[in-house]
Design a binder for these strands. Structure first.
Length: 641
RNA sequence: GCCGACGUAGCUCAGCUGGUAGAGCAGCUGAUUUGUAAUCAGCAGGUCACCGGUUCAAGUCCGGUCGUCGGCUCCA
C-alpha cells in the first residue's frame, strides 16, 4: 500500500503495517517520541494496523494532537491508580484538556479526597507507569460492553454507552484496567513517567447541577522531568502576576466584606489607572462621533419587562426595590435607559447614527462561589454605548465599533481571540425576535467580519437573546479565559421599545441598535491589564510615574523644584524626603514598580541634571532636567512605550 | 448555590501529639546625612474570622455560620 508522508513523499509498505513501523522506518528517534499517527486525519494507535493507501501524520508531544494522546493515556493511568487504591470507585469521564487531563470519579461510600491524598495517587501512577505495559485496543460489541459495565456496576459508563447504542465500541486496557474509550493512546504506560496531580474539585456529572457531584482530579504529565519542572515553575511565576495579589501590593483596589463580596472599591492608585483608561476611550469616542450621557443606577422594573430581561434573568439580578407602589431594579445593564434617551424626541434619518456612550455601572447578582477579584464581581462599570442607526448604516457602524475594540487590544499589546457568537439552532426558544431577522443579522455581522479580514471562531449558542455578537476573549495569568469587549447587533430592542425615526420617505422606520463595549467591564479589563503588565504599568498609566530621590538633606530643595516642575507638566510625581539611604529609596521605588526614579545628589545639582533610573532596567545615567521633562511628556500619552 | 482546602498583627507567615500567642516587613520614637535594590536601636501592635460544644485547660479537638481560594454550574 502507498503511504503518503506530510512532506509529500510516498512510500510503499505491506498492507497492515503499523504506525510504529512507519515511524521506525523514518527514524528511531521519531519512533521514540511518537504518540500516535493520524491516518487520513483519523487518529490511530501506533500499534494499529493500517489498511489501504493513506496519508499519514505522526504526532508527538510537540503537537496539540500528540499532547492530547499523551494526556488522555495519563488519565487512564490515573484511573487505574484510583481503582487500585479505592476499590469500587466508579468512573465518569477522563479527557485530556488544554493543560493536562482530569478524571471525574464517584468514590465508594463516604470516601473523600483532598489534595493531601494526591501524592499517594501520584506515586501509584508512577509505579504503574514503570511496569511499561501496553495500551491495548479492543473492539467489542455494544452488548458485551454493556454487560461488562453492568457486571462492574459502573452506572456512569452505562449511561455513556446509552448514547452509543447500536454501534460497536472500543475498550482500552492497560494492565488491570479496562475503560470504555474511543482512543487514541500511547503505545505503553512507560512513557508516562512524570505525572503530577494538581488539584481536586467537585464537578457535576455531565455538567448538570441537578445531578450528582463527582470528584474531579486534575493532573498533568510530561515525557521529560525537566518539562514538568519548567511547567511548575512557570505556574508559580504566573501566580505572582495574579491581579488580586498585585492589587493589594500596589494598593490598586480592595474588597471589603463590610461593603460586600464582589463589590470592589478603587483605591487612589487604582483610580488613576482606571481614569487614564477612561480618558483614553473618551478621546476615541469624540473622534468617532459619540456623545456622552449619564443615567442613574436604578430604573423602573417596567423598563426591564419591556426589554425582556426581567423576569428572564431575574435570578441573576438583585431583588427589586419597592417605593410608593413602584418597583425599581438596580440596573443590570444600561440599554433601556439609553433607549429612553433615544426616544425622548423625534429622530430623523438625518440625525442617525445616534451614538450614546456612558461609563455605566451595573449590578448583577453572581453566585458567591463565582466571585473572583476584579474579574467576576457584582457591581461593575461598562464602557458602554448604543448606536442607533439605519439598516444602511449598520455595516459601517459595526466596522467602526470592531475597529475601536481592536485599537484597545493593540494599544495594550494583548493577545485576543474573537468569537462570533450565534444562536444555537437546537434551542430556538432562548432567542427573541423572528428567525428571519436573526438570519439576516447573523449574515450581516459575518459579512462585516469577512470584509474586515477578521480572524474569528464561531461560538454556537453564545449569542445574546436579542442578537448575534462578537466577543473578544483574553486569558489571565493562570490561563483562564475571560470575555472583555463585545459588539452586538440588535433588531429586537428597537421593536420592544418602539424606537423609530422618520426616513426620507416621511415614513416611520425602526433603527438597528449596536451594543458595544471595547473594554467590556472596567473591572475585568483592569484585572487582565494588571496581569498582562505584571503590575509594571507603562508610564502613561502608572499611578506614580516618577519618584524623585534626593540623596541627603542638602539635595532636597533642588529635588523639590524638579518635582514641582514635573507636576506642573501633569506628571504624577512622588518625592522621597525620608531620612533613608539612597539604596533603600531605590529598593522601594523598584518594589512599587514606579517607571522612573530620579536620583539627585551634588553631582546632579551641579549639572542641572538627574540620574535617571528606569524600573527594571537600572541606571540610565545623567540627564539634563529639561530633557527629563521632555521625556516625561513624550511618554505620557496612551500607547507610548 | 454545589464539592474540596483554607481563615493567626496592616502585609507575608511560624505556632509539634491541647498547657492563656511569635517572627520579618510596615507603623511610631530616637540615633545616623547617606551615591543605585532594604542603616541601627527602642516602642507599640492580636476577641487566633464568628457562634456554640468537649475539656481542669482550646489558636490547636468537634459542630454550625460567614468569608477566601481552586473547580463545577451560570453569565444580558
Amino acid at each position: 500500500m502507498n503511504i503518503t508522508l506530510p512532506n509529500g513523499d510516498v512510500r510503499v509498505f505491506p498492507e497492515g503495517t503499523t504506525g510504529m513501523e512507519i515511524a521506525k522506518s523514518i527514524s528511531e528517534g521519531l519512533a521514540r517520541v511518537a504518540m500516535g499517527i493520524y491516518v487520513n486525519d483519523t487518529p490511530y494507535d501506533l500499534s494499529r494496523p493500517i489498511l489501504g493507501d493513506a496519508a499519514v501524520r505522526i504526532v508527538t508531544f510537540d503537537n496539540d494532537e500528540g499532547r492530547e494522546i499523551f494526556w488522555h493515556s495519563s488519565a487512564h493511568l490515573l484511573a487505574e491508580a484510583l481503582e487500585s487504591l479505592y476499590p469500587g470507585v466508579k468512573f465518569g469521564i477522563g479527557p485530556p484538556i488544554e493543560n493536562g487531563f482530569y478524571y471525574d470519579v464517584d468514590l465508594p461510600g463516604e470516601t473523600k479526597l483532598s489534595v493531601e491524598d494526591l501524592p499517594k495517587i501520584e506515586a501509584k501512577m508512577a509505579e504503574l507507569a514503570k511496569r511499561d505495559v501496553p495500551y491495548e485496543r479492543i473492539e467489542i460489541s455494544w452488548e458485551d460492553a454493556v454487560a461488562y459495565f453492568r457486571e462492574k456496576g459502573d452506572e456512569y459508563k452505562l449511561e455513556l454507552l446509552d448514547g452509543l447504542k447500536g454501534q460497536d465500541v472500543t475498550f482500552y486496557r492497560q494492565g488491570n484496567f479496562t475503560d470504555l474509550c474511543r482512543g487514541t493512546h500511547v503505545p505503553s504506560t512507560g512513557a508516562l513517567k512524570f505525572p503530577k496531580l494538581l488539584s481536586v474539585a467537585g464537578a457535576y456529572w455531565r455538567g448538570d447541577e441537578k445531578r450528582k457531584m463527582l470528584t474531579r482530579i486534575y493532573g498533568i504529565s510530561f515525557p521529560k522531568k525537566q518539562m514538568l519542572e519548567d511547567f511548575l515553575k512557570q505556574r508559580e511565576e504566573a501566580e505572582k502576576r495574579d491581579h488580586r495579589k498585585l492589587g493589594k501590593e500596589l494598593e490598586l483596589f480592595m474588597i471589603s466584606q463590610n461593603i460586600g463580596g464582589g463589590l470592589p472599591v478603587w483605591l487612589p492608585n487604582g483610580t488613576i489607572v482606571r481614569r487614564r483608561l477612561e480618558d483614553f476611550i473618551k478621546e476615541e469616542l469624540v473622534k468617532r462621533g459619540y456623545v456622552e450621557v449619564m443615567t442613574p443606577h436604578i430604573g423602573n422594573l417596567n423598563l426591564y419587562r419591556t426589554s425582556g430581561h426581567y423576569p428572564y434573568y431575574a435570578e441573576s439580578q438583585f431583588a427589586p426595590i419597592t417605593v410608593e407602589d413602584e418597583e425599581y431594579l438596580l440596573k443590570p445593564m444600561n440599554c433601556p435607559h439609553h433607549h429612553q434617551i433615544y426616544s425622548s424626541k423625534p429622530r430623523s434619518y438625518r440625525d442617525l447614527p445616534v451614538r450614546l456612550a456612558e461609563f455605566g455601572t451595573v449590578y448583577r447578582y453572581e453566585q458567591s462561589g463565582e466571585l473572583n477579584g476584579l474579574s467576576r464581581v457584582r457591581g461593575f462599570t461598562q464602557d458602554d454605548a448604543h448606536i442607533y442607526c439605519t439598516h444602511d448604516q449598520l455595516k459601517a457602524e459595526l466596522t467602526n465599533a470592531i475597529e475601536l475594540t481592536q485599537l484597545v487590544f493593540t494599544t495594550f499589546g494583548m493577545e485576543v481571540k474573537t468569537r462570533l457568537s450565534i444562536r444555537d439552532p437546537k434551542t430556538p426558544e432562548k432567542y427573541a425576535g423572528d428567525p428571519a431577522m436573526w438570519d439576516q443579522a447573523e449574515r450581516e455581522i459575518r459579512e462585516v467580519a469577512d470584509a474586515m479580514g477578521l480572524d474569528y471562531f464561531i461560538g454556537e449558542g453564545e449569542a445574546a437573546f436579542y442578537g448575534p455578537k462578537f466577543d473578544f476573549i483574553v486569558r489571565d495569568a493562570i490561563g483562564r479565559k475571560w470575555q472583555l469587549g463585545t459588539v452586538q447587533v440588535d433588531y429586537v430592542m428597537p421593536e420592544r421599545f418602539q424606537l423609530d425615526y422618520v426616513g426620507a420617505d416621511n415614513q416611520k422606520h425602526r433603527p438597528v441598535i449596536i451594543h458595544r463595549a471595547p473594554f467590556g467591564s472596567m473591572e475585568r479589563f483592569i484585572s487582565i491589564l494588571i496581569e498582562h503588565y505584571a503590575g509594571n504599568f507603562p508610564f502613561w498609566l502608572a499611578p506614580v510615574q516618577l519618584n524623585v530621590l534626593p540623596i541627603a538633606d542638602a539635595h532636597q530643595s533642588f529635588a523639590e523644584d524638579v518635582a514641582a516642575e514635573l507636576r506642573a507638566r501633569g506628571i504624577r510625581v512622588n518625592i522621597d524626603l525620608r531620612n533613608e539611604k539612597i539604596n533603600r529609596k531605590i529598593a522601594e521605588s523598584e518594589q512599587k514598580k514606579v517607571p522612573f526614579a530620579l536620583v539627585i545628589g551634588s553631582k546632579e545639582i551641579e549639572a542641572d541634571s538627574a540620574a535617571v533610573r528606569q524600573h527594571g532596567k537600572g541606571d540610565l545615567g545623567l540627564m539634563k532636567v529639561a530633557d527629563v521633562f521632555a521625556m516625561a511628556q513624550r511618554l505620557n500619552v496612551p500607547g507610548a512605550e
